[in-house]
Amino acid sequence: MIRKTIASAALAASMLVTGMAYADVEFKPLEKDPETIVFGIISTESSSNLKAQWQPLIDDMEKALGQEVDAFFAPDYAGIIEGMRFGKVHVAWFGNKSAMEAVDRAGGEVFVQTSKGDGSNGYYSHIITQADNDKINSLQDMLKCDHSLNFGIGDPNSTSGFLVPTYYVFAQNGVDPKNCFKTVRNANHETNLMATANKQVDVAANNSEQLARTQMNKPEVTDKVKVIWTSPLIPSDPMVYRKDMSRELKSRIKAFFLGYGRFGDVERAKEVLANNSDGMGFFMESSNAQLYPIRQLELYKNKLKIENTAELSADEKAARVAEIDKKLAELDILVSYE
């Protein structure tokens, strides 16, 4: 009875935190399991680069499942989220922020997460500038806010390119990028790195995975940039599937990922993983719970934004902050049961 009560309380808190109730589900339900599984890949870099990294794994997945698996690329993260929402994407590689959107709005469910080739988990957000820029060596140098600098930020659904720097770099310092820089432009990690190296932007958000991958393939590019800020550790990327597929199909998909590199043609799988991103290791079991820290980060970011805005009255601020504090308390309950 106690365990059932705890589980019910956790479920209720989870629904409140995500802002969803079963009657408010926005995604289009699947009528049946897909005959062709569509694998969505977020646009961290060019589609050609991503296809070269992911297609071998997708081919192996197709063989293992005995079912056609097609890759799907979109020009931005939202395209993959919306594809899953309308049942056009069934499995996808996301970052944590985009996975949170997929879980809340697109009928998604986290089932495994990536790891590094050395067995470690997580990665870092960075702020970068040109290696020969002796005027910018720290956040203090960047946040002078005299509208002289061009800033490259990530996709709005990117964890390391947008959410993390928005909270740690800007919200915690009471800075609105639009009121600080000459221009602010959104782009994927690869584009922001190249734009910084080629002096098309002065500073940009990036991450440790993109820098490491580019260092492996194009060291002449990373030699042109330097890191001026590094975030706390970010949880490794989640894999998400549509939660309304049959238990049997979800089990087979999950088994493929958890077995990849552990069983079967181990050497091929390890080579495929090593050539993906900055070198992947095995997939590890996970769940929607890995998104709790990201939800907290999003709420703290919104709380700071409300506290620093001049457009709201003191009473309006207090009411909105109280609502966020309530959601943060609910998250604390969920985290305590992990």
Rank of each mutant, 00 (worst) to 15 (best):
Asp315Gln: 14
Asp146Cys: 06
Val321Ala: 03
Lys178Thr: 10
Phe283His: 09
Ile37Gly: 01
Glu323Asp: 09
Thr191Asp: 09
Pro34Val: 10
Met100Thr: 15
Val110Pro: 12
Ser158Gln: 06
Leu328Gln: 01
Leu149Phe: 02
Ile234Asp: 06
Glu330Val: 05
Lys63Leu: 10
Ile80Arg: 01
Leu291Gln: 05
Thr222Phe: 09
Asn207Arg: 03
Asp155Arg: 04
Asp244Ala: 09
Lys327Gly: 02
Ala12Pro: 00
Lys4Pro: 07
Thr191Tyr: 03
Trp229Ala: 10
Ser336Trp: 02
Phe39Asn: 00
Leu57Ser: 09
Ala171Met: 01
Glu26Pro: 01
Arg105Met: 09
Gly279His: 09
Lys116Phe: 12
Ser158Cys: 07
Val184Trp: 02
Glu298Phe: 03
Val335Tyr: 14
Met1Pro: 06
Lys199Leu: 03
Ala310Leu: 09
Thr129Arg: 11
Ala71Pro: 03
Phe27Asp: 09
Gly279Cys: 12
Lys224Cys: 10
Met1Ala: 11
Asn217Glu: 12
Ile128His: 03
Ala78Cys: 05
Ala7Ser: 14
Leu11His: 07
Ala10Cys: 08
Met100Arg: 14
Glu26Cys: 02
Gln130Arg: 15
Gln215Cys: 08
Thr214Asn: 06
Gly117His: 05
Met61Lys: 04
Ile42Cys: 02
Ile6Gln: 00
Lys254Pro: 07
Asp237His: 14
Ser48Gly: 07
Asn206Asp: 10
Ala319Lys: 12
Ile324Trp: 04
Ser160Val: 12
Ala23His: 00
Gly122Ala: 03
Gln215Val: 10
Lys116Ser: 12
Val69Phe: 03
Lys224Ser: 12
Arg252Ile: 14
Pro75Phe: 07
Asp134Glu: 15
Ser158Ile: 04
Val272Pro: 05
Glu62Ser: 11
Ala319Val: 14
Val203Ile: 12
Glu209Arg: 15
Arg268Thr: 15
Ala99Met: 06
Asn137Ala: 10
Val103Lys: 04
Asp325Asn: 11
Ala10Ile: 11
Gly108Arg: 06
Thr196His: 03
Tyr22Cys: 01
Gly83Ala: 13
Glu338Asp: 15
Ser8Val: 10
Thr222Gln: 06
Glu307Gly: 09
Leu65Asn: 04
Thr183Phe: 02
Ser125Leu: 11
Leu139Tyr: 05
Glu109Val: 09
Phe283Glu: 07
Glu316Gln: 14
Ala274Asn: 13
Glu267Phe: 10
Thr214Gly: 08
Ala12Trp: 02
Lys32Ile: 02
Ile41Met: 04
Val321Trp: 02
Ser336Arg: 07
Lys97Phe: 15
Pro75His: 06
Ala78Asp: 11
Lys182Leu: 13
Asn49Gly: 15
Tyr241Ile: 11
Lys270Arg: 15
Met84Gln: 06
Asp24Pro: 03
Pro177Phe: 09
Gly122Ile: 05
Ile228Phe: 05
Met100Trp: 10
Gln140Leu: 12
Ala10Pro: 00
Leu249Phe: 08
Arg213Ala: 15
Asn157Arg: 11
Ala197Trp: 00
Gly95Glu: 10
Ala106Cys: 07
Asn276Leu: 05
Thr309Gln: 11
Glu45Gln: 15
Phe94Asn: 08
Arg213Trp: 14
Leu233Asp: 04
Ala23Met: 00
